[in-house]
Simulated assay, not measured.
Amino acid sequence: MMEEITDRFHGHDSSTSSSDSDDDDSSSTLKSDVYRLFAREKPVHKVLGGGKSADVLLWRNRKISGGVLAGATAIWVLFELLQYHLITLVCHGLMLALGILFLWSNVTIFINKKSPLRIPEISIPEEPIHQITSVLRLEINRTIEILRDIASGKDLKQFLYVMAGLWISSVIGSFCDFLTLFYIAFVLLHTIPVLYEKYEVRVDSFGEKAIAEIKKQYQVFDAKVLSKIPTTISSKGGKKTA
Results as ranks from 00 to 15, higher is better:
W104E: 13
Q219G: 03
L89Q: 13
D13W: 13
S26M: 07
S53F: 14
H12D: 11
S14G: 06
K236S: 14
I119G: 02
E127M: 14
T16A: 15
I122S: 06
P128W: 06
D177H: 10
D25Q: 11
I229Q: 12
I233H: 15
I233Q: 14
D25K: 12
S123T: 12
I100D: 04
E41Y: 01
D204Y: 01
K31E: 15
S26G: 00
H10L: 14
K216M: 11
S205Y: 11
L96M: 07
S123Y: 12
H130V: 08
V194H: 04
I140L: 11
F175T: 13
S19I: 14
L195C: 11
D7R: 15
I211K: 05
H10K: 12
L188M: 13
L96I: 05
S26R: 09
N141G: 05
L166E: 06
L69Q: 06
S115P: 04
R62V: 11
E213F: 13
D24P: 00
M1P: 07
A151L: 14
V68P: 02
R202F: 01
I129D: 07
D7P: 02
Y35Q: 01
Q217D: 04
T232D: 12
V220C: 00
I172E: 05
G49K: 01
E213P: 00
F178L: 15
V90K: 08
Q158E: 10
I111S: 05
G93S: 13
T6W: 03
I192A: 13
L138M: 08
Q217A: 03
L57V: 02
F9Q: 11
L156Q: 01
K216A: 11
H190M: 12
G71M: 06
L69Y: 01
W76M: 04
S205A: 15
T88Y: 09
G165A: 03
K239E: 14
S235R: 10
R60K: 14
D177R: 05
S205F: 09
V187F: 09
F9Y: 08
G66Y: 04
H190Q: 04
I229L: 15
A72C: 03
G238W: 01
I5D: 03
E145M: 10
R8H: 10
D155P: 02
Q83I: 00
E139S: 08
T6L: 07
I5W: 02
A151H: 13
G11S: 10
T143R: 10
E200Q: 11
H85N: 12
S14A: 15
I75W: 03
F221H: 06
I119E: 04
Q217H: 09
L195D: 08
R36F: 06
S28V: 03
I192G: 04
A72E: 02
V194R: 09
T232H: 13
F221A: 10
I122F: 13
D20M: 11
P125Y: 07
W59E: 01
E41Q: 11
L147A: 14
S169M: 10
R137P: 00
A164R: 06
I119S: 02
K240N: 11
P116F: 02
A164P: 00
D25W: 07
S205V: 07
L160H: 05
V90D: 05
M163N: 09
S169N: 06
R137G: 14
N106F: 09
W76Y: 09
T6R: 02
S28R: 14
A70Y: 05
I124F: 07
S65L: 07
Y35L: 05
D20F: 09
I87R: 15
V34P: 00
K31S: 12
S21D: 13
D149P: 00
I144G: 03
F206Y: 08
